[in-house]
């Protein structure tokens, strides 16, 4: 307890003394955490929307006008027996026409001029939301395409999968950028801490000569790094929240439209805590590196 108190007191005093150089490491830590937080917020929202699309994804089986009653019954049995289908609805030719008139009122007159209803009957199949069923759904769609009485099969998941892949790629690219920023932040903290160590070299020499335990010698460096990283993370989270609030205020409705009518959400509390812990961890690592470098340079720690 005493060593912790000592390390904290020395670290805060040193942080305050070197506040100008400390501000630099706080800002680099803040930049790394801000980018990481923004990336997490973006991918979280995109995944939520994609999840919604996936749960609403449908497979539509268009039935040929020439299909016999037996063929229709066989199609329906095959859908009911499938493990990937959650439920299904039959949309008759007249239902399809009614929907068309409702959705495209200005084109209704064109349909009326035709002798017969050109729209096919269909089965709308709602799929299970388990993402692991991807290939099973593909197989199911292929089987239906080859079944007698089926004119066509339309399957939403193909383009959803492509968007998901895009999000994964974005996340990987973001991870690389964040990694580079985190390394830069840790090195900046290490150098700032080392600079602080240089100004405390007289004190460190005395500590070495009186045989002070390592925890007392290196501890303040680690805590100082941790403070820099922690303050950086807090600044980043504040900036993220500010940016989110501004975005909501000015572009809220546009974002909601883009996100399928669901409002964008800020980071969940767990991620908030993880980002803060990440800032502290990056700072601690920087502090440790700084202490080791000081040891090498001053031969005291």
């Amino acid at each position: 307890m005493q060593v912790l108190r000592y390390c904290f007191e020395e670290a805060t005093a040193s942080f305050w003394r070197g506040r100008r150089s400390g501000a630099m490491s706080v800002m680099t830590s803040a930049a790394a955490i801000f980018v990481l937080g923004a990336l997490l917020m973006l991918t979280e929202n995109l995944e939520r929307v994609i999840g919604g699309w996936e749960s609403a994804a449908e497979l539509v089986v268009y039935v040929s006008d020439e299909a016999t009653g037996d063929e229709r019954a066989a199609i329906e049995r095959r859908i009911s027996a499938s493990a990937v289908a959650r439920s299904h609805t039959l949309v008759s030719k007249s239902d399809a026409l009614r929907r068309f008139r409702a959705d495209f009122a200005e084109l209704a007159s064109v349909i009326d001029e035709l002798d017969s209803n050109p729209l096919p009957a269909s089965y709308e199949v709602r799929l299970q939301s388990d993402p692991g069923l991807g290939s099973a759904v593909d197989d199911f769609a292929d089987t239906l395409r080859g079944a007698a009485g089926v004119a066509d099969v339309r399957y939403d998941r193909e383009w959803i999968a492509r968007i998901s892949m895009g999000v994964t790629a974005l996340r990987a690219l973001g991870a690389l950028v964040v990694f580079a920023l985190v390394v830069a932040a840790a090195l900046t903290v290490a150098n700032v801490v080392r600079l602080a160590g240089h100004t405390r070299r007289g004190e460190l020499e005395i500590m070495r000569l009186v045989g002070a335990p390592l925890a007392y010698v290196r501890g303040p460096f680690v805590v100082e790094g941790m403070l820099q990283g922690g303050v950086g993370a807090a600044v980043a989270l504040g900036m993220l929240w500010g940016a989110f609030a501004l975005g909501e205020f000015y572009y809220g409705s546009m974002i909601a439209t883009l996100l399928s009518a669901t409002p964008a959400t800020f980071l969940p509390v767990e991620l908030y805590a993880i980002l803060l812990a990440g800032g502290l961890a990056v700072g601690s690592v920087g502090g440790m590196v700084g202490a080791r470098r000081t040891a090498r340079a001053e031969r005291t720690v």
Binding site: Q2, Y6, I206, V210, Y216
Partner: peptide, 11 residues
């Protein structure tokens, strides 16, 4: 006091 402090003496 710095010396007894870093040698973990009580306050």
């Amino acid at each position: 006091a710095f010396v007894p402090r870093v040698l973990s003496a009580s306050a």
